[in-house]
Amino acid sequence: MKESWVMIPCRTAHRLISEGMDRPLGLGERARLRLHLAMCAMCSRVEHQMDFLRRAMRHIDEG
């Protein structure tokens, strides 16, 4: 994917996935991230993995 104001690179997508776990993303950020995730299976994977890791961390005191 060529980078442009609407096409963000995977690197930016990863950052936005993480920031979205800490603060509400702006409308523009959310739209660009959604668009990227709709077209990029690799980043969708990362999004699921981040979500899984958050759930796993909630159990860290059980091991």
Binding site: E3, P9, R11, M42, F52, A56, E62, G63
Partner: peptide, 28 residues
Amino acid sequence: DGRRLSPPLDWGDPEDVLSTQQFMAMLQ
């Protein structure tokens, strides 16, 4: 271009590992 050099692996549906000791020890 900001793409991953090595694509992230498919972790599958890992929900069940959360209850295993080995996974939690590795996570810690």
